[in-house]
Design a protein around this nucleic acid. Sequence first.
DNA 1: GACCAGGACCATT
DNA 2: AATGGTCATGGT
Length: 283
Amino acid sequence: MHDYDLDATLNCGQAFNWRRDGDAWRGIVGGRWVELHSRAGKIIARAETPQPDWSWLEEYLQIHVPLETILAEFPTDDASLNQAVEACRGLRLLKQDPWECLASFILSSTKQIVQIRQITGLLRSRFGEQASVPIGCAEAFAFPRPEQIAERTEAELRECKMGFRAPYLLDASRKIAGGELDLNRIAGLPLVEAQEVLMQIKGVGEKIAECVLLYGYGFPTAFPVDVWVARALREFYFRGRKVDLPKLRRFASSHFGSQAGYAQQYLFHFIRTRRIQDKESGK
DNA sequence: GACCAGGACCATT
DNA sequence: AATGGTCATGGT
């Protein structure tokens, strides 16, 4: 896969279940331990036991998605977006488990990505089931299911450093475990209705709902606007002016077209990595 | 120590 | 409709 940038894809703030070890990425997908390498234009995968069928991983990584076709849907007269694509061509959107995605992004609000990794990691190791790993590898845990979270107390969840987000995660897990909310039903709904269903959960607003719809369900026009994307939109399309979130969202929905979600991810990764580089070069 | 982080919610104008 | 404060915790 010459057009698959594994580093960017696994480390661009859409998923929080990957750790780099040398040139390998290790994580849990669908409860299974897996290790990924990018080598000579190919992605090499290793699981704990031999896999007769890798379709679960191909689906997660969206291997079959033709990236060039998606990029061809981007607005052509957009220099900033073109620049973002050039900076990290090969960046992909994953197809994550909706529940894990929902729970992770409930925990994401006003948290840095390193901290989201820490919180979800604590949640796994305390409440998730231990996965089998190859000899010599660090222990790993599946993401706890809704029922496993729902039976905990708010105080127990707060011990995972999630602070005021604990009642939000508890509300989500209990609505789902209790059958009040069916995550399987969301996939077939129109975007706006799907978003409204998710926003019935306390602590889930427009942004978090769009993250779940984009990363967990693959709605191609979902366009989450966080502080970074807002920053990018204001700088690139409004000459740095103060523009409020509703206006930014309206602009995005009219400008980026049928693959707006992908465009969002390129802008997010572009402006974030640029900021990090600026800091490293002493600015 | 100040400021910020892949926000949401609620009270006040 | 639009601000503004608050929430918990840790990184830079």
